[in-house]
Amino acid sequence: MNADRLRHMASILRAPLPPDVVGFNMLYYVAEVEQVDLDGETEDPDEFEKMTATAFREDTPACGTICCAMGLAGLDPKFQAEGLVWDKVRGKFIVGGQEHLYGEAAAEKFFDIAWEDADTLFGPACALYLDYDADETQTPVDPLDVAAVIEHYANTGRLVHVSQIHAGVAA
């Protein structure tokens, strides 16, 4: 595990959003994706439509990943210098200068964590971050909660729900 990178990820989530990012949402792609055949493989147009239909804004190139935490990581200058770059044309991450990977796979490789942990921390299911208000309505995922869980994981190697961290019962 690269705990230093994970701690930096937590600091990114605690900072104000970059000016070209319109919001934080762990559940949707937010990308300026162009259908470009870069390597001779034809992308399925239906997949691009699914990926961009919900939150696509042509005038705002926001974070662009299945989980905005990874999107923010791909836009971070420090992480870019270390080899994690968001390729807005292909809708994937370049990791280590060559591999084009989706969010969880990029997180697994870049942060040197197990795929299951990458999926839990950065994936769209958000099991560690979701909370429900009194009438059982899901509340939005807060980047500060994601930061707390990632930092706890970096410090302990344990995945715990944000409510345990806030209650002070996470070991």
Score class of each variant (00 low, 15 high):
81 A>Y: 08
57 R>T: 12
54 T>E: 13
128 L>K: 02
53 A>T: 13
22 V>R: 12
89 V>N: 07
2 N>R: 11
122 F>I: 00
28 Y>R: 10
48 F>K: 13
158 R>T: 12
138 Q>H: 04
14 R>Q: 13
77 P>G: 08
66 I>N: 10
92 K>Y: 10
17 L>A: 05
121 L>A: 00
72 L>H: 02
125 A>Y: 07
100 H>P: 00
116 E>R: 08
124 P>V: 07
7 R>C: 04
41 E>V: 15
51 M>F: 12
77 P>S: 08
161 H>K: 15
83 G>F: 03
58 E>K: 14
96 G>A: 03
156 T>I: 09
50 K>R: 15
19 P>N: 05
97 G>S: 05
78 K>T: 15
20 D>E: 14
9 M>C: 07
81 A>N: 11
78 K>A: 15
5 R>C: 02
49 E>R: 15
109 K>Q: 08
25 N>S: 09
41 E>N: 15
25 N>G: 04
146 V>T: 09
6 L>Y: 01
64 G>T: 04
134 A>W: 06
20 D>R: 11
132 Y>N: 02
159 L>Y: 10
161 H>R: 14
37 D>W: 10
125 A>W: 07
22 V>K: 10
39 D>V: 12
133 D>M: 01
159 L>G: 07
125 A>I: 05
106 A>H: 00
142 D>L: 07
60 T>V: 13
108 E>T: 06
34 E>A: 11
54 T>R: 13
148 A>K: 02
159 L>T: 08
143 P>K: 02
41 E>T: 14
115 W>Y: 14
33 V>H: 05
162 V>I: 15
164 Q>C: 11
141 V>Y: 01
107 A>F: 00
85 V>I: 14
10 A>D: 03
20 D>P: 00
130 L>K: 09
151 E>D: 15
25 N>F: 07
43 E>G: 13
119 D>K: 08
131 D>T: 15
107 A>R: 00
38 L>P: 12
39 D>Y: 14
9 M>R: 00
119 D>C: 05
1 M>T: 10
37 D>M: 11
127 A>T: 10
32 E>D: 13
97 G>I: 04
19 P>Y: 03
154 A>R: 03
163 S>I: 13
63 C>T: 14
124 P>F: 05
55 A>T: 14
145 D>N: 12
27 L>N: 12
12 I>T: 02
127 A>V: 07
45 P>T: 09
148 A>M: 11
41 E>S: 14
133 D>K: 03
11 S>D: 15
167 A>Y: 07
29 Y>E: 06
8 H>D: 04
165 I>D: 04
146 V>M: 05
76 D>Y: 03
107 A>I: 01
119 D>M: 04
80 Q>S: 09
15 A>Q: 06
124 P>D: 06
